[in-house]
Design a protein around this nucleic acid. Structure first.
Lengths: 207, 207
DNA sequence: TGGCTAATGTACGAAACGGTACATACATTG
DNA sequence: CAATGTATGTACCGTTTCGTACATTAGCCA
């Protein structure tokens, strides 16, 4: 297999495939040989670029988390009235989760290992802040105008939204099985999306 | 190690330890040797009683899911007014999840493997029904009395409650890390518990 | 009490798996 | 165009890990 050299392509291809394999099989279940086989390069390159299996997983985790920034950047909450902004944030978060199932599954994998890996990646330490501060700003405006209740904080709201969105993706297999419901079906998704908006807005506008 | 024989004890001890190890390390991460070492018996017994690693995992999964029945049995929703019953169900579900983190983690593990294992256990097929029917009954009463809205179905309500409760346990590592919040702290738990009740009741009583 | 079966223990094998030593080819640059 | 470092490929090693063949013991029942 003679092939023109392209360090960047090799690196990113490994990351891409590794994201898939780790999210499908978990950390221990993922096989270094399998990841390599699914790319156009060899196992040797995993050790060359990432130092080993764990280094590769760390890189995958970091790249995945970094992609969340897209989310905060894509919503210009400041342009909207507080109530509309809240619904918008909820719906955008929902869409983001649905569109990045691999990421959500990686988070599950990392939680099973009690966050042992992510603690080693310093750059992930303050990745939560943006999401919280966007919500915080909206809550402050709503509080000032009297449209939103004053006794909840941004992180609690974010948690509620995350919980609902993560569940859609992370637990679709078991929940779908136990209740005979296809969580991936478009019309089901659409209803869940609307319900989430209703719940959050209802909660925050109650007095 | 001479020891009086007790098939039942050996079996249940294996199940107990395996539950712990699988929920801590995931399916592939769990080591058959480690499970055996943590018991007073040997690896041989895993193959004698469960046929192998996968058989053991299936047994663990089944035993864990079966324990949920406790939940439906412990709440006598019929005794309560619809609104109170809803809050009660939410809080009891919350408590149950918090008190059985191993079970929640097992569900996560199973979801990573896309429910591949549980599909093999026929007895798990209709385990969701009780939870849905309890809610269904309460919703019907509330609908009749006009206290609860009529446009949501039991499974959607159950999903919302489950999502919130599962997240507390399953994602405490990553969420806690990203937002510098100890999800296990009693006062945090207590607030989340109250918030869940408020949200669900608010949602279902809105018109 | 002697025999029979369920239950348990020991020791080992084969394959899977993460990792590495070593050889080599490409491309950039002086 | 030679030289040098980056990038890649191959073949292999040592360990771990699931699983099993075989031996043995405990206790029940005739």
């Amino acid at each position: 297999m003679v092939q023109s050299r392209d360090a960047e392509r090799t690196r990113s291809e490994l990351l891409e495939v590794a994201t898939e394999v780790f999210s499908e099989q978990g950390y221990s279940g993922a096989r270094v040989d399998e990841i390599a086989e699914r790319t156009r390069t060899t196992k040797r390159m995993i050790y060359y670029y990432f130092g080993g299996k764990e280094g590769l997983f760390l890189a995958v985790l970091e790249a995945a988390y970094r992609r969340i920034r897209e989310l905060e950047q894509s919503l210009h909450a400041g342009d909207l009235e507080p109530v509309d902004a809240i619904r918008r944030i909820a719906e955008l978060t929902f869409d983001h989760h649905v569109n990045h199932p691999d990421f959500i599954r990686l988070v599950s994998v990392e939680n099973i290992h009690r966050g042992r890996h992510m603690e080693k990646v310093e750059s992930l330490r303050e990745l939560g802040a943006p999401a919280a501060s966007v919500l915080d700003e909206v809550l402050a405006r709503g509080r000032a105008s009297g449209e939103l209740r004053a006794d909840v904080d941004a992180v609690d709201v974010h948690m509620m939204i995350s919980a609902y969105c993560v569940f859609q993706v992370a637990n679709s297999a078991t929940f779908g099985f136990l209740f005979g419901r296809d969580m991936l079906a478009p019309e089901v998704r659409e209803r869940h999306r609307r319900i989430l908006g209703d719940i959050v807005v209802g909660w925050l506008t109650a007095r």
